[in-house]
Every structure is written in C-alpha cells, then in structure tokens.
Design a protein around this nucleic acid. Sequence first.
DNA 1: GCCCAATGTAGACGTCGCCAACAATGCTGT
DNA 2: ACAGCATTGTTGGCGACGTCTACATTGGGC
Lengths: 200, 200
Amino acid sequence: MNHMSASRPYHHGDLRAALLAGAERTLLEKGVAALSLRELAREAGVSHAAPGRHFKDKQALLSALALSGYDRLARALEAADDPALPLQPRLTGLARAYLRFALDNPELLELMYARKHDPEAADLMATAVDRTVGHLGRIIAEAQRHGEIIEADPHHLTFTVGAALHGAATFSAGGVLDRETVLSGVDDLVHLLLHGLKPR
Amino acid sequence: MNHMSASRPYHHGDLRAALLAGAERTLLEKGVAALSLRELAREAGVSHAAPGRHFKDKQALLSALALSGYDRLARALEAADDPALPLQPRLTGLARAYLRFALDNPELLELMYARKHDPEAADLMATAVDRTVGHLGRIIAEAQRHGEIIEADPHHLTFTVGAALHGAATFSAGGVLDRETVLSGVDDLVHLLLHGLKPR
DNA sequence: GCCCAATGTAGACGTCGCCAACAATGCTGT
DNA sequence: ACAGCATTGTTGGCGACGTCTACATTGGGC
C-alpha cells in the first residue's frame, strides 16, 4: 500500500552502487571522517538500515571503496604506461600518473593502504596490490634483461622503487608541497633512483 | 563532602598525562579506531566529561599524541645517528631506526602523518617534521661538501631519501612483509639509493 | 500463480562526542 | 588566615552513529 502519492518504488534498483558512488563523493569532498552509513542512506533516499543489506558493516563499505580505488589506480597506471619508451621516461610517466592519483584522491589512497580490512577483503587487496607492483616488477625485470639495471634481486629493486614512489605520494598527499612542485620534481626523483646519489 | 568512604581525591593530580598514557597504550594495543574519550576517562577513574577539561575535543588529544610521537621519533633518530660513521652505514643506521619505529608504532605513525590537525597543532607538527628532515638534510649537505654526493638541489635529495624511507616504513607498517625481512632489507635499500639502479 | 529469497522499513539499544549547569579544590593576594 | 576566583571534576542530557531484530514489500524461479 502506497501512503504517499508518487513515492519512489519500494526497491531502489541498485542501492549498492548508489551507496558506493555517494561514499566516493563524500570521501573526496569531506574526507573519510565525514562518512556515515545513515547519511549515505539519506542521500540515497532509503532507510537508515538499508545499507546493512549490502555491506555487513561500515568497514565492509570502506573495503569496497578501497578495492574500487585499486581498480582505478591500476587503470590509470596502465593507461600511462608506454612500453615503447626508454626506461627512464617510461618510469617517469608511471611515477607521474601515480602521484597524480595520490594528489587527486588522498583520502582514498589512505583507505587503500589502511590495515583494517577483513581477512577476506585483505586478500582481494593483496591481489590488487600484486597486480600493480607486479606491473612495475615486470618493467624492472625486463630492464634487467636489457642490461639497463643492475642484476640484484628484482624484488628488492621493485620494493625500493615502489617505496620511493609511495613515500613521495604520501608526502605529496599530505599537502606539505603544492601539486605543481611535486609533479615537476618527478623527473629528478626518477633520475636519482636510477643514477643514485653518489657521483659517477 | 565525601559520600563514599576511602574514595579517590576529587582531583586526579595529572589527568592530562594519564589520558595521554592510556591513549598511547590503547593506540598500540587496539588501534586508533578503539580510542574513545569516555573509555579513557573510565580507565583513569574520572567522569566521562573530565577529558574535556584537558583536550578541547578528541582531535586535540590525537594531535597531542602525534606530537609526542614526533618527539620520540626524533630522540630515536638522534640516538641512532653516529656522525663518526661513513655516509652509507650512517644512513643505514638511521633508516633502520626509522623502520623500527614504524614497525613498533604503525598506528602512531599514521596519526603523525594524518592531515586532520587544527591549524595550531599543524604548526607544531610542521616544526617537528622540520626538525627531523632537517637532521637528514644536514647529513646530506655535509656529504655533498665532502664530495660524497652529487651536487644537486639538496632539498630534492632530501625529499627523495625521505620519501624512500617513508615509503618503506609505510609498506612495512602495513604488515605485508615481516619485521625481519624489512629490517634486513635496509642495507640494500640504502645501497640502491646511493648507487642507483643503473649499472656503473 | 505461489513461494521464497532478496531487499527495504521501523524501532530499539548501547556507545559516542560534546555541551551546560553545578560542585569541589587549591592558589593568590591581602 | 581567609576570601575570591580560576581550575578541575561531576552529572545529566542531546543528537548522531553503527548495529541488531522483527516485520513489510517485492520480484524471480519452480
């Protein structure tokens, strides 16, 4: 029985997606602290308990958000990777894409690296991370085969490069430096990683 | 008038310190999400509104916690720094101390790098950070004077080294790698930073 | 066309951060 | 010594939140 005239249908249609979309927007505009399931439900026009049908608890929604973040990051990196380029500009392009993502989505990045996810979600995270660092790892291994990079344990190399990029992204997202300064420093960062701090 | 026999004194003595200590313990044992002002008040044996006399809101307590974290980190780094050492082992020692701190206090480190602090607290943070990266910066500038490091913009160099260390710390604190693996990888990390990935 | 699983609703419970009004305490100036 | 006052703690309450349970509505598969 419909009390109100012209009321929306009892079922939302795709509440899960609507909640995720709203959460993403709130995350971008007001930060993770401002995320509330009840508020998201209000925005979606459903009752305060409806989100519980799609996410077992708030953390589950955050995990889903982080997971979709990994997807977007992976797509951004793959789009930015040009295998035809020589090693250094290729890495620079990747680094720039990563930093751009970090600068555009600082709170999302924080969520992605948070260590509060259910074991199940954490597994999905791990594979998502593997996909990304695996990409970097393959580039490095290939460069090793071409003799462009020293023959050390490729995991160590990947870890170091990934750490430098991620640290830069964290610093940048922290807002100490402005966007342009960070992005224009990428060339030097990659150069330093490749050539080292010691004179040659 | 004392209703209860043998009740505690009306005033706590040093509630502020007790709250911070309790918060630090909870942070270590159960994470920042489990931090509640009311719970801290209970542990300290005071009423639920008492913390409000010492911290204007919850964020103020978190900021104080972060600030004390910077203090401890700075002390740990200074204790670990041996200026008599050659550059590479000296940096390795510092890196190891930083990673140890990150592994021991992952949630605290996250708090320290959070970008949610009041302008006033953010200022104190900034100077605390300056103190630490300034230390690193001086080491690098000195090495430059000795010709041990290329003559590039020292800020760029410091940023890169700091980013690499911080990224490694974040990865480590994230719990993907176990403590021993991380700490034993420090030598390689510093070596790579100094000598670069390209063959010499 | 019926039945059941999926989805949404209504209400309640306990916890939380924060605020205001009030009570106890200890410091300071005289 | 002691009055007055700022500091510190208490009590009670407000609104918001996450989560649970019981119930309502819907739509797809037998």
